Simulated assay, not measured.
Amino acid sequence: MRAEVVRAQEVGAASVLRLQPSAAQTSRGAGSVVVNARDGDLSGLAAATCQTPANELWLSGASTSIGRTSVLTLSNSSQTPATVSLDDFSGNGPLQTPAGKGLVIAPGTVRSVVLAGLAPEQELLSVQLKSSGGAVSAVIQQSVLRGLTPGGIDYLTPVQAPGSKLTIPGVRVQAPDVAAKISAQAGYEDATTALVVTVPGLSDSVVEVKAHGPEGQVALPNGGVFTAVAGQVNQLSLAGLPQGTYTLSVNADKPVTGTVRLINSTKVGDPVDIAFAPSAVRLGDTHLIALPKDVTSSLVFTAPDGAATLKLVPISEDGVLGEGKDVELKPGKSATVDPSALLGSGAAAVLISAAGAPAFGTQLLGSTNSANIAVLPIADTAAGNRAINITTGY
């Protein structure tokens, strides 16, 4: 196997990566976009993983309250027109948004929707997107300005479809005393790390949350069990968790969606940054991730219910696959891996394969000497990789 690595491509519009099979072999590809804004009102670190278009998507964690800007960008890379309808959920229940229905996106075009025009002054907002015709991809550009102080930027990428069991890796928590000082400032009430849960059904959902750290399960200060109200966006504060990087296991008696809002800061008065860690797919065979340059990258893995083994194969800048390294995951513990230390500083991308109990992972990004933080979810494997050829005969 060989690879091609392409970095630092300047783009002025939506870009599409198409992969064709070669010699009966399924091609794999992955990409990401990273924005590192060092000054101005919109300073911070934002990142998103390229996604496979779909006809139904959920996005969670947006806010349209004062100082918060949410722009939903819809891309139709197919050759078929797409008609998109948006269903919005707030912290007070479903919203009636007729202007979000019947949005036509022509083939090969992009359409942006300012969510404050559909759902103004909403502290919490989740969006269910349904497309008839062409499949689309979607992302929310979220930014925060607290008075004259930058409050962070990020891309909100789709979360997993509503389910009764979700896993959210890459939850980085600051020291409780530092986090308390930041959120105690005027206008910083939402500058807290919190689990955001949306219940799309008609019945309330009892949600149990467990936090898995490097040494195992850590008790949540509020007990981790709460009732999420039907049709609403609910949040559970993670304030009080000891400093560290965790994975959250979410179990609910009714289907829910989940994401975690991360807040990172340096000191009181300085800008903070935000990031959103969405619920993750179970790792399988040969997931591909890119390792961005000029930012600190770490990989966070966990196997909540049993032991698992991961194989990480580095890919160099010139497309050569290196020797794979094994990472052993102990039941219920989170493991943080420095890819440059494990795989070498020349790695530009990584192939990840998992065996054993269900395992999950994500990529955390940051930069030294700043509050910058972002999350790059690990994309699901291509549909072709799941196919099994069965030959019958005598």
Rank of each mutant, 00 (worst) to 15 (best):
N234T: 02
I66P: 09
A280G: 08
Y155V: 01
P53Y: 10
Q232V: 02
A23S: 14
V206L: 11
V71Y: 05
Y394P: 14
V110P: 12
A354L: 11
L74P: 14
Q128G: 13
Q185E: 10
Q160C: 09
V313P: 02
A194C: 07
V295D: 07
G284V: 08
G102C: 06
E4H: 14
P98R: 01
S112Q: 15
L376E: 13
F226C: 03
P107Y: 10
A106E: 15
D270W: 13
T391K: 12
V35S: 06
S126V: 05
L365N: 04
T296R: 00
W58S: 01
N369R: 13
A13E: 14
W58K: 00
G151N: 00
G44Q: 01
T227I: 06
L42Y: 13
P162F: 03
Q243M: 08
L42H: 11
A335D: 04
S334M: 03
A116V: 09
T309P: 06
A46H: 04
P358T: 02
G366Y: 05
R386N: 14
G366M: 02
A24I: 01
L42C: 06
S32F: 06
R282T: 15
V281T: 13
S334E: 07
F89I: 00
A62H: 06
F89N: 01
N369S: 14
G67M: 08
A230C: 00
K101R: 15
F276K: 00
F89D: 00
G393C: 12
P21C: 08
V35K: 00
V209N: 06
R172G: 06
L376N: 12
V207W: 04
L283Q: 10
R261A: 11
S22D: 14
L103M: 10
N369W: 12
T362V: 08
G356V: 11
L145W: 00
F226M: 05
V350F: 09
P242T: 05
A13T: 12
A30R: 03
T247R: 01
V337I: 15
T381D: 11
A135F: 13
I390H: 09
S27T: 15
L364Q: 11
A211K: 04
A357C: 08
A116K: 09
Y155C: 03
G223I: 07
A48G: 12
E10L: 09
V171P: 07
S203G: 02
R386T: 12
E123A: 10
V320D: 07
G213W: 10
S22V: 12
T286I: 11
Q51G: 10
P214H: 01
D177S: 06
G93Q: 04
T64A: 01
S132P: 14
Q232G: 02
L299I: 07
G40V: 05
Q363E: 15
A175Q: 12
A184G: 10
E10R: 11
N389A: 14
P242G: 03
T362G: 09
R146C: 00
A277D: 08
V104L: 13
L115N: 05
P339M: 04
D318L: 02
P162S: 03
A116I: 04
T80W: 13
N264H: 13
P221E: 02
L291S: 05
T149Y: 00
R261K: 15
I274T: 07
I373L: 13
G151Y: 02
K325R: 14
N222S: 14
P21N: 08
A106H: 14
A186S: 11
P169Q: 04
A275E: 14
I315D: 05
E56H: 07
C50D: 09
V144D: 09
A180I: 01
S353G: 07
